[in-house]
Design a binder for these strands. Structure first.
Lengths: 207, 207
DNA sequence: CTTTACATACATGCACGCATGAATGTATAG
DNA sequence: CTATACATTCATGCGTGCATGTATGTAAAG
């Protein structure tokens, strides 16, 4: 076929990833063939094989495109070192949850990653990288909790590490709730409300 | 082939489910053929098709066999109406987490359900039933929190419903942590420690 | 004799990876 | 500026292997 210009090639690459999001969401990662993706993108398998080695690479590229820009927010927060670390952390969590609730694309990709993908063989690497990402976020929030402790704002039953782990578990569980929400019930307000109550519980009570 | 007696037939059915656990864990639900399951069970596909209509039914039976006996623990607790509902709930959660950490079979099946299965098309029904189960548990724990509130044991920032949702999110997130644990780090003690801190935070502080 | 509990056999239809072709963009030499 | 050489960007076709569902055979249990 005729050679395209570089920007056009980028457009077909994006079209392939768009199509992958759509078809992965509808049929799951394992059950969708590269041919289905190609058809949905209006190209043939040749194009897909040109831009990506196999389905795993398509999947990883699809995830990266959506979540890479968002990953390092916490680290900036931890580095900034404000005087209200718990508030910063809370707003960051609220923001993440709201993003999941409002941005359909992010929600769909997250849904693919949690409910429509099997992490075995090829994909094991993906889960490892996800764990590494989770761990970086954990370290950052632990720093913020440690700062809160030094400022005397953290209730005594919580060590920074425990608080960080519990917070991450809570958030991922709430996001799960958003992803599972059926019919037209909006789970997000309840989620934000839970986050706020949780942070209130984390604070040292005045006597 | 020679016909087996009824108990022997039950044994091959169990063998098929055992094999399904093994192969689903190794290769994911979608990628494993019924033939692989049959081979791992020492039978042919004919036997599998005799006991189950298709792979979805195998998968559901495998899940049921492990989790049905455990599902209604919370409801009994809620019906009992003790005078320490928060303690009861805490012990129930600790028990569930410890079970995940110690019982390899349960952990593997849970891993299949969360990391090695794609909930699309046929399997959508499974996720619906899982959501229903989660909801029943939510209602039960909400009752317990409501009782705690009446007993004056629940901190004011928590409404029973919020507490129930947050607890469920926390637990599912922590179980996720257990399932993702790599090399030989044991995540469970940290998880139990988080649960204990969380319940301490839920309690109304003495002034 | 009928039903059960499988094994075997068959037909169909994907999905994958590779190899090759084709036509155009792009860089370079003169 | 132009011609040539090469690299890109796909489309098409082929062979292969597997997975599925069903249909049928069969021997013993009930």
């Amino acid at each position: 076929m005729a050679r395209k210009t570089k920007t056009e090639a980028e457009k077909t690459r994006d079209a392939i990833l768009d199509a992958a999001e759509k078809v992965f969401y509808e049929r799951g990662v394992t059950r969708t063939s590269l041919d289905k993706i190609a058809q949905a993108a209006g190209v043939t398998r040749g194009a897909v094989y040109w831009h990506f080695r196999d389905k795993k690479e398509v999947c990883e590229a699809m995830m990266h495109r959506v979540f890479l820009p968002h990953e390092d927010m916490l680290e900036k927060l931890a580095a900034r070192g404000s005087d209200k670390p718990l508030d910063d952390l809370k707003h960051s969590c609220l923001h993440a949850l709201k993003l999941m609730a409002t941005d359909k694309r992010r929600r769909n990709v997250a849904s693919i990653m949690t409910l429509r993908c099997e992490y075995v063989e090829d994909m094991e690497g993906v889960v490892t990288r996800r764990a590494a990402c989770k761990n970086r976020m954990l370290v950052s929030s632990e720093k913020l909790f440690a700062r809160a402790r030094r400022l005397g704002a953290l209730a005594p039953e919580w060590t920074p590490r425990k608080a960080a782990i519990a917070l991450q578990a809570l958030i991922s569980g709430l996001i799960m709730g958003v992803l599972e929400q059926r019919d037209h019930f909006d789970f997000a307000p309840m989620g934000t409300s839970c986050i706020e109550a949780f942070f209130k519980s984390l604070q040292k009570k005045a006597l």
